[in-house]
Amino acid sequence: MSNNISLWLRYKAKLVVTNVSWGLLTFSSRYRAGMLLLFLGLTLALFQSGNPRFLSYRMVSTILAQCAEVGLMSLGMSIAWMLNGIDLSVNDLANLSALIVAMFLRSIFRPTNETVLLICSLAIALTIGLAGGALNGLLIGYLNIPPILTTLGTMSLFRGISMGLTEGKTISRLPSALAVFGRTTVLAIPTPFVILLLSCLFMYYLFSFTTYGFKTKMTGLNPKAAFFAGVHTKRAVFTGYIFSGLLASLAGIIIIGRTLSVAYEYGTQTYIIFALLVLNLAGIKPGSYDVLALLVAVVLLQTLATGFYSKFLTLQGGPFFNLFLWGLVLVVVLALSRAMERWVSTRS
């Protein structure tokens, strides 16, 4: 008799465990943003308990200002990701556009009026972003070259151009008026984060309420079906990569504004890995686009990076350990999110 009861209890317990974990998994796959917010709260609490000054206004605004660059790059890469591709050239395109703005202001024309200067530099950066994105889009959309290889090629091309133009040196002493893009605040929120928020809003509008966004999603989900439904799939891919390039050049402007200097190697490799991590954490797939989750994932990652950085700063060779850790985190997060997806899809 007692044996029966224990068996029954065990059965019930197993049922409860599977149901709860199943519920959590479905919840987390449906409401990514909520789960990521939960994680964000947990990490903040953890770092706060380790260092009571972690949640000060200064620290939070630093984190928010820093996450704008990565956020814009991953926002751009998310469009490529939705089109079943990848854009590895975002970081180098950002550097290139920042660099061309700097070169222009230094040697060709430096407006004395501040507003003209800002508009001028923004226009130049966006033009470079448009051109770089158009090159990617042309090769991927119209010539059907695989995105990984194309963007690897354009990445090395952009880096080569910036390396040749700067001769490997850092350009500094830029007009301090440019700091508007990076070091000021709007309503106590750092300007870079405001730019990121505005771009996120724009992307949300684009992919939720316009036919263009819908067509792009369809192209990513099933290019053949989209083609037969009358979508210009080539054009959709082309414009998608153009948007990615434009967002990258916005990131370039923020880089100038924050550091008031330009280096051809700024953030190479780590930013791309960050962007890939963000996309996977936010669960962006062809056909599903969640800007809110992306934003929360960016903030979460930046918080983690800042926390780790301040933790390992005192350790000898700490930056190297950070490299090791980020590689490990990338592999583990990718594998886990993929396993979760599979599990959910087999259960439902």
Binding site: I86, G317, F320, G327, L328, A335, R338
Partner: peptide, 28 residues
């Protein structure tokens, strides 16, 4: 094996290992 058993494309996995192994070299 990581790529195959997690069902991911090789490229992102190898990117992670790229960073990890260089970090391992430099730190350890």
């Amino acid at each position: 094996a990581v790529s195959v058993f997690s069902g991911l494309p090789l490229f992102p996995v190898s990117l992670g290992f790229w960073l990890m192994l260089y970090g391992f070299n430099l730190f350890f």
